[in-house]
């Protein structure tokens, strides 16, 4: 098959409005349109399944029918670029943000981002997290200049919605109930050992971790965090980061 034929075939697979590629024949001599429709359907159903398995909480929120329709539209506009489906849907959240029928559910894109980060953490390289005892051995005057190496599974998400609460309720991690206190929640996702962990960040925590993960000195990260939230608690945040295995080394 020439590249041109392949491109035309792929375009027709993704979009039912495009005519069946010329020259196509069916093994039983019937019209190729019906055989091609089966192929088209299998592609969409297979990819919808891949998207649904990556974003189960989002599917729970909108329901199966809405999710499938939304996924089908995404698949049409963003067909996979790689045969590995592990990362297919990395840009699903950005798509959903602009997907008009979902506009009423303002927090949906962030839930999808959290689920994407969980998938990324699940498949990230295995690395043992930093042993907290190594920090204790440092002379105090070195602490301010420490630069930490983030764990390959680490993601930090900031949301104007109660993101972690919404995700936990729809992922079966917490009981469904109405959210009385609708406040912004930042999340950190990491897989220090075998299990992906999602943690709700305390005030200033996301800014602190983001600064450290981007290679800022500990002192600079603390300054950013205090500017963001005056209630920032260095001890609690550092302990949280060490417990969740956010870092693998320092220098």
């Amino acid at each position: 098959m020439s590249l041109c034929t392949q491109t035309r075939f792929a375009a027709a697979l993704a979009d039912p409005a495009v005519a069946v590629p010329p020259g196509l024949t069916a093994w039983n001599g019937l019209q190729p349109q019906r055989r091609f429709a089966v192929y088209r359907n299998n592609v969409v159903v297979g990819l919808t399944g891949a998207i649904a398995s990556r974003f189960p909480a989002a599917q729970t929120i909108v329901g199966e029918a809405f999710f499938s329709a939304m996924a089908a539209e995404f698949i049409r506009v963003h067909p996979p670029r790689s045969p590995l489906l592990l990362s297919y849907g990395d840009d699903f959240a950005d798509f959903v943000e602009r997907f008009e029928p979902a506009n009423d559910i303002a927090y949906l894109p962030d839930v999808i981002r959290l689920e994407a980060a969980r998938g990324k953490a699940y498949h990230a390289a295995d690395v043992a997290p930093l042993d907290a005892a190594k920090l204790a051995a440092l002379p105090p005057e070195r602490l301010a200049d420490l630069v930490f190496v983030p764990h390959p599974s680490l993601s930090i998400l900031r949301s104007p919605h109660p993101l972690v609460t919404i995700w936990a309720m729809n992922a079966g991690e917490a009981e469904l109930r109405s959210i009385e206190d609708w406040t912004a929640e930042d999340a950190m996702v990491a897989r220090p050992h075998m299990t992906v962990e999602v943690r709700r960040m305390p005030p200033g925590g996301a800014v602190f971790l983001q600064a450290l993960a981007s290679g800022e000195r500990l002192a600079t990260a603390v300054e950013h965090a205090i500017e963001n939230a005056s209630a920032f608690d260095l001890s609690a945040n550092l302990a949280g980061a060490l417990q969740t295995g956010a870092f693998i080394a320092f220098h």
Binding site: A136, P140, E141, L143, I226, E227, N237, L238, A239, L242
Partner: peptide
């Protein structure tokens, strides 16, 4: 700027390690 002394850092890190 919010300058923090080495002794405050040491205390915070020590507290963090005890929490861990």
């Amino acid at each position: 700027m919010n300058k923090i002394s080495a002794s405050v850092f040491a205390a915070s890190v020590a507290t963090a390690l005890s929490l861990v």
